[in-house]
């Protein structure tokens, strides 16, 4: 029984991590008033870049860095179009998703060729934390994961601290709630928004790297498979707060992990209904089991400096 729970929770954390990583970044974008539908495309870019980086430089960390860098570039396009040109954020996000799919599919073929087995590359292997990993239940769940899971868990409190306890965080939130007021007190709205979008780019890239190098060790076309959208849901469900996003990601991860195990136990429920579980859970979550989730007031609106 203990094994069962341990395995379930370990699977939950593995599945939740890419959603969490992307969600942490998206919290920053959202708090500054940017709705980033393009996280999916940025993650996909990150997923390919990570594999390429690891393939070229022989190190998973190099892969992760390249992933963050590539997604950062994409997020700059997003930032430029939505902040400077004031284009509709949803539309640009959609374009980023299409672009991500097209670019990664094309370049994966240019770099790795068609119909060859994926090359052996360095990936993130589970690292057992000494002593702690021996604790029953918690040990295997929390302390026998790969480095990126630890990174994600460590970043949550830091991201929370920066957002709610520092000057920078205050500026970000001010820009998202009332850009005009923020502007009058001397905050550079554009700069704050650019910065926030870049943060979401960096983390989306890292989340993509986690999918291709943390969960797996190769790239396949469209492998992010909707996790970017789930991350967006996690942000809202988590009330635009990194700690909340952690809870939300773990809930979605639990839905997935449950679905896997139900199918493996040979239940009679058609598997399609099990596949729906995480999405239904998301909707139920958004409907306010945890109270209303209030979006920043200037969410989705371009700012025009008078």
């Amino acid at each position: 029984m203990l094994d069962l729970i341990t395995n379930f929770l370990a699977s939950d954390f593995r599945t939740a991590t890419p959603i969490l990583l992307a969600a942490i970044g998206l919290v920053y974008g959202q708090r500054a008033g940017i709705v980033n539908i393009g996280a999916e495309g940025m993650m996909l870019t990150g997923a390919l870049a990570a594999v390429v980086g690891s393939f070229w430089f022989g190190s998973a960390w190099a892969g992760a860095l390249l992933a963050m860098f590539s997604a950062l570039l994409i997020s700059l396009i997003f930032a430029y179009l939505t902040i400077s040109v004031r284009a509709d954020q949803v539309v640009v996000g959609t374009a980023i998703n299409i672009l991500g799919l097209g670019l990664t599919t094309s370049f994966a073929r240019v770099i790795f060729g068609v119909n060859t087995a994926p090359p052996k590359i360095d990936a993130f292997e589970p690292i057992a934390v000494p002593v702690l990993s021996k604790i029953p239940l918690i040990g295997p769940v929390l302390f026998q994961q790969n480095a990126l899971v630890y990174v994600a868990l460590i970043v949550v409190p830091i991201a929370y601290f920066i957002l709610f306890k520092t000057d920078i965080g205050l500026k970000i939130r001010a820009v998202g709630e009332h850009p005009k007021a923020a502007d009058t007190v001397g905050i550079n709205v554009y700069r704050v928004r650019y910065g926030s979008v870049m943060v979401s780019g960096l983390f989306s890239g890292l989340a993509g790297a986690y999918v291709s190098l943390g969960l797996l060790s190769f790239f396949t076309e469209n492998m992010v498979a909707g996790r970017g959208f789930i991350a967006l849901a996690a942000v809202i469900f988590g009330k635009y707060n990194p700690v909340g996003a952690l809870g939300a990601s773990l809930l979605f991860g639990a839905g997935e992990a449950l679905q896997y195990r139900l199918q493996a136990s040979g239940t009679d429920i058609p598997f399609q209904f099990l596949l729906m579980v995480p999405y239904i859970l998301t909707i139920l979550a958004l409907c306010g089991f945890v109270g209303k989730s209030q979006a920043p007031a200037a969410s989705g609106q371009p700012y025009v400096k008078e």
Binding site: I37, F229, A233, I236, T282, I283, L286, C287, A295
Partner: peptide
């Protein structure tokens, strides 16, 4: 109050 941005995707 569930944002249609997300629910429609789900």
């Amino acid at each position: 109050g569930a944002s249609e941005l997300i629910t429609t995707i789900m």
